[in-house]
Amino acid sequence: MSAGRGLRMSMVEAGTALAFALAGTAAIGDSLRIGTGWGADGPQSGTFPFWIGVILVAASAGTLLQAVRARAESGLFASWGQLRLVASVLVPTALYVAAIPFTGIYLASAALVAWFMHRLGGFGWARSMAAGLGVAVTCFLVFEVWFLVQLPKGPLESLLGY
C-alpha cells in the first residue's frame, strides 16, 4: 500500500478499461444491426466498426487484467488535494458549458473569466468583472460584427437586436 490519500491508480485504470470495453461493445452491437459481412462489392457498413470493436474489447480486457494484477502496488492517480484543484477549474467550466444554451456564449464567458480571475487569481471584483466584460465584448465584435459568425446567443443579445 502506498502512502498518501487520494484516488487510487488501479481504480481509475479499471474504470477506464471498462469504459473502453463498453464503447467497443456498443460498436459491436450497432454493427451487427447493419451487417458485418463481406458483400459482393467489399465489406458492408458494419464490418470495420465490428472488428474495431472486437479488438477494443480484447485490448481493454487485457488492460483490465493487468490493472487487477497490479492493484496491490499501484500508486495514486491523484491526491485529493490535486483533485480539488482540478475541480476548481473543471466545475466552473462545466457550469459554463451548461449555461451557454440559456445565456448565450458571451454572458457566460464574461462570468467565467471574472470568476477565474477573482477566485483563482485573487483579483478584486471590479477588475475581474471589467476583464470579463472586455473579453465578451471583444469576442462579440470579432465574431458577430466583423466576421459575421453567429455564436450562441441568449436573451440579452436578443434585447439588443441580435
Binding site: V113, F116, L120, G121, A131, C139, L151, P152
Partner: peptide, 25 residues
C-alpha cells in the same frame, strides 16, 4: 499572463472554436 486570466480566456476560445467547427452547441 497570470494563469487565472489566460486559462479562462483559453477555455472561452476553445468553446468558441468547438462551436464554430460545425455550428453546434
Amino acid at each position: 499572463v497570470p494563469f487565472s486570466i489566460i486559462a479562462a480566456i483559453i477555455l472561452v476560445v476553445c468553446a468558441i472554436g468547438a462551436f464554430t467547427v460545425s455550428n453546434a452547441e
